[in-house]
Each structure stands twice: as structure tokens, then as C-alpha cells.
Amino acid sequence: MASLITCPHCGPRPKEEFSIRSDASLTRPAPDADAETWHAYVYLRDNSRGRHREYWHHAAGCRRWLVVERDTQTHVVHSVTDAADATRTRGAA
């Protein structure tokens, strides 16, 4: 795992400045979705071996939520985007 994460707002910053909030590929279900859908959202994970998107919070920096795309086998960081931009892009796609 790289020790530096390039924050789109702050530039390369040490990993310790961030806290990690798990899988960013999940989509929150509608409030009235059935129990099975909610169970899958809250508890089940793809847990990919390879490319993986994760929420990182730049807690000791700009305090923005970021989406870090990494490889879980090699620890290479592919991209870091602001979570709002990532959501917008995903919404458009």
C-alpha cells in the first residue's frame, strides 16, 4: 500500500491523515426496499481480489470524502476522486 494518497484537493498526503469507510461500489437502496435488498447492502460484500473502490475520508486535511480506486493484490492506487464527483459521474453513466 502506498504510503501517500494523492488527494485531489490537497495533493500527496500521508495515509495516516485519512480514515477508511469501506466499499464505494454499493448503492444505498430506497427506504422502502425489501429486507433482502437492505441485508445485501449493509452486510454482503464483493470483496474483490484486484480492482476495488473504497471511500476514504481526508479527516486531517480537507475533510472531503474521496473515492480511492486501488488494487487489493498489488496495492497500486489507480485513481483518487472526490466522492461527489464520483457520484455525479456514476449518475451520468
Binding site: 500521508p14 495516516e16 481480489r49
Partner: peptide
């Protein structure tokens, strides 16, 4: 644990320091 998903059997120096 280091805190991020990983299948690599090695960790980060920041955790070593901690």
C-alpha cells in the same frame, strides 16, 4: 489491521509506526 481491503500478505509502514 491496516484498515483497507487487501489480499497482499504485506502491510503499510504507517501501521508499523503506530
Amino acid at each position: 489491521i491496516d484498515g483497507y481491503n487487501s489480499y497482499a500478505q504485506r502491510g503499510n509502514l504507517a501501521t508499523v509506526e503506530h
